[in-house]
């Protein structure tokens, strides 16, 4: 019984912030001042959600986080698809078409998983400026592809290592080429790793803050940057219900992915973590 009591306490600890966020986002400010963190709302109101989405102030502009929510999708979707696809091709080359130096290159690339990004953002900022991509979502897509690729390559490489090489060599003898083998033999086997990789990349890119805050401009910011501006801008009265509603909006896409595909999410975490 003690065992279950401890586990129950732990469950409450992990659930508390989500419950508090949700309850607070559904209260009025008067209700918040009268009650406490976990008191039931007097009345369930969606006002804070509406305001967070369409009229809350995020720094200079007061148009809510809605537009930034879509920015995040505009950044995330191409970045995830391109980096995943490139990762699949790289993984395929690094396991089935090895050449002299390819293993060394993989080692060099792995290092890219570990560097603190602070050490590359200044040169990258300057490069994006030269390319005319500063303050654009395209620039952010580019950055996320560049720094996401080490991970996607790692995922696919570790997956393809366990695909029997006989499959490939037999096809080669039959005269099949590089891309034919990839399309007809490798890709059909790759669904699970695609799911893992896409979920991992989606979470990484959606939740990114550092690249967003450094490389984006006023109206190209991702949701995380907008949320931070909304919460930490010091103008006017603090509306905690709006803050929490905005935080929920920022959290929803990744939470939905987690709920729908938790198994793959965890698999990605452990696979990415153990090696990367």
């Amino acid at each position: 019984m003690a065992l279950y009591a401890v586990l129950l306490l732990a469950v409450l600890f992990y659930l508390l912030p989500l419950v508090v966020m949700l309850l607070t986002s559904l209260k009025s400010m008067a209700d918040i001042r009268a009650g406490n963190l976990i008191s039931w709302p007097e009345e369930f109101l969606l006002d804070a959600w509406v305001k967070a989405w369409s009229s809350a102030c995020t720094g200079v502009s007061c148009e809510g986080v809605g537009a930034f929510f879509w920015n995040s999708f505009q950044i995330t979707i191409p970045a995830v698809l391109i980096s995943t696809f490139l990762g699949a091709l790289n993984g395929y080359v690094l396991t089935k078409w090895k050449f002299r130096g390819s293993d060394i290159f993989f080692g060099l690339m792995l290092f890219g998983c570990f560097i603190p990004f602070q050490v590359v953002i200044l040169p990258m900022a300057q490069t994006l400026g030269w390319l005319g991509l500063a303050n654009t979502t395209t620039g952010l897509v580019f950055v996320h592809i560049v720094y996401g690729m080490a991970f996607t390559t790692l995922f696919f490489r570790n997956f393809y290592v366990s695909v029997p090489s006989e499959l490939v060599s037999a096809a080669k003898i039959d005269g099949a080429g590089f891309f034919t083998i990839f399309w007809r033999i490798i890709l059909p086997l790759s669904t699970p790793i695609f799911v893992v990789c896409i979920i991992w990349q989606f979470t990484q890119v959606w939740n990114d803050f550092l690249f967003g805050v450094v490389f984006s401009g006023g109206d190209t910011q991702p949701i995380t940057v907008a949320l931070n501006n909304l919460v930490n801008s010091s103008t006017g009265v603090k509306e905690y219900n709006v803050d929490m509603a905005a935080a929920m909006i920022a959290a929803l896409p990744t939470l939905v992915v987690y709920v729908l595909a938790g198994k793959y999410f965890v698999r990605g975490l452990t696979a990415g973590a153990v090696k990367g």
Partner: peptide, 15 residues
């Protein structure tokens, strides 16, 4: 236990 990993640190910080 694991859902917090799906959240952004910005959301965690805000909460």
């Amino acid at each position: 236990f694991l859902y917090p990993m799906a959240l952004s640190f910005i959301v965690t910080g805000t909460a």
